[in-house]
Simulated scan of single mutants.
Amino acid sequence: MSHVANPATVEDCLRVGAGFSQGDRNWIAELFATLDARLAGFHADTTELEVSVKDREVRGQKVTLECWIAGRQKVVTTSQEEDLHAALNDVRDDLRRRLNDAKTRQEPRNNRHLREQAVPAETEAPPADGGYPPEM
C-alpha cells in the first residue's frame, strides 16, 4: 500500500449540506469515522464528502452522501430509511462498498477471482523476415 503524506479522514473532508446544521457535523463525523480506513489511501486536499437530507425526520426523507476524489468519478449513495441514524449508516456502508469495489476494479492483482482466470494465450508475432522458411 502506498503511503499518503496527508491522508483523507472524515473529520477533514466532511461537510454538511441541506437539512443538517453545523451542530450535526460532529456526531455525523463520529458515525462515519469507520470510513477513515478506506479514505486513508487518498489525499485529504483532493477528497470531499458531503452529506445532506431532504425532508428530514418525516416519512419519505432522503439522505444523500456524495464523495469526490480527484481523478475518479463522483460517488453518490442515497437512503430512504425512515430513521435518520439508520439512513446515515446505510449511505456510509454503501459508500464503503463502492470504494472497495472501485479499488478492486482498479487493482485486479489483489482480487483472487480475477487473478485466477486464465489469461488468453498471446498470438505469436510473425518473424521479421515475413515468416517464410529460408530458401535452399
Rank of each mutant, 00 (worst) to 15 (best):
V4T: 05
A5Y: 03
P7G: 06
P7M: 08
E11S: 08
C13N: 01
C13F: 04
A18K: 12
S21T: 14
N26G: 14
W27V: 14
W27L: 15
W27R: 13
L31P: 00
L31F: 01
T34N: 15
D36Q: 09
A37I: 03
R38C: 08
L39Q: 01
H43I: 03
A44M: 08
D45Y: 09
T46S: 14
T47A: 15
V53C: 14
E57V: 07
Q61A: 10
T64D: 06
E66Q: 15
E66H: 12
E66D: 13
C67R: 05
W68Q: 08
G71D: 05
G71E: 05
R72L: 14
Q73L: 10
Q73P: 06
V75C: 10
V76A: 11
V76R: 12
E81R: 04
E81M: 07
D83E: 13
A86D: 02
L88K: 01
L88Q: 03
L88F: 02
N89Q: 14
D90L: 07
D93H: 07
R97V: 12
R97C: 09
R98I: 04
R98W: 07
L99F: 09
L99Q: 06
N100A: 11
D101T: 10
A102Y: 00
K103H: 13
Q106Y: 07
Q106M: 13
P108L: 01
N111I: 02
R112M: 07
R112W: 04
P120M: 00
A121W: 02
A121Q: 11
A121I: 04
A121M: 06
E124N: 10
A125H: 07
A125G: 06
G130I: 05
G130R: 10
Y132F: 15
P133F: 06
E135H: 13
M136N: 14
